[in-house]
């Protein structure tokens, strides 16, 4: 994802930072909340580095933890009425079923741009600023808001 003018300005102020893909140097740490995910895959389309991708497998247990009022929640409610036992392990999803898949996140590939956070409609992807101590020679720009001078 290309940086905005403000992003380039911040990157220019940072020693050792680049405006390209540089994991851990500039940006945020991404945390996924599996139980809120509705599997729409928007984070996957938004991710510029391929850190987010859709799995070929789906764990039905994920349906049962989905919030009510979502499509997955409605599916779980219907399935729960006829279920004979708790769902067994994950199964392979056919090619053309796109929304019922797990989302895999690889922190190693993540550039910390936050595109997935902005793309997520349910708030299942959250970003935290990388603490200043973890950025090599990075100045205050990445410190939490309260720590700024």
């Amino acid at each position: 994802m290309p940086l905005s003018a403000r992003g380039r300005q911040i990157a220019g102020d940072l020693r050792g930072a680049t405006s390209g893909v540089s994991a851990g140097v500039l940006g945020c740490e991404v945390v996924r909340h599996e139980e809120l995910c509705v599997g729409c895959g928007r984070c996957v389309s938004a991710c510029p580095t391929g850190a987010m991708r859709q799995d070929d497998w789906f764990d039905p247990a994920q349906l049962f933890s989905a919030p009510a009022g979502t499509g997955r929640g409605a599916l779980a409610a219907a399935l729960r009425r006829i279920a004979r036992h708790e769902p067994s392990g994950p199964f392979r999803v056919p090619d053309r079923v796109r929304t019922f898949r797990g989302i895999l996140f690889s922190p190693d590939l993540c550039a910390g741009c936050g595109a997935c956070v902005r793309a997520c409609p349910t708030g299942a992807v959250e970003a935290f600023p990388v603490p200043v101590g973890e950025v090599e020679e990075g100045p205050r720009a990445l410190a939490p808001a309260g720590a700024r001078p």
């Binding site: 039905p60 399935l79 279920a83 708790e86 769902p87 067994s88 199964f91 056919p94 079923v97 019922f100």
Partner: peptide, 23 residues
């Protein structure tokens, strides 16, 4: 064009789902 292919895969998905809960 592809509606029935989508339906085929969705039915296959539902069958897997039913199987996973013992139906």
């Amino acid at each position: 064009r592809v509606g029935n292919f989508h339906a085929l895969d969705r039915v296959a998905f539902v069958r897997s789902l039913l199987e996973s809960v013992g139906v």
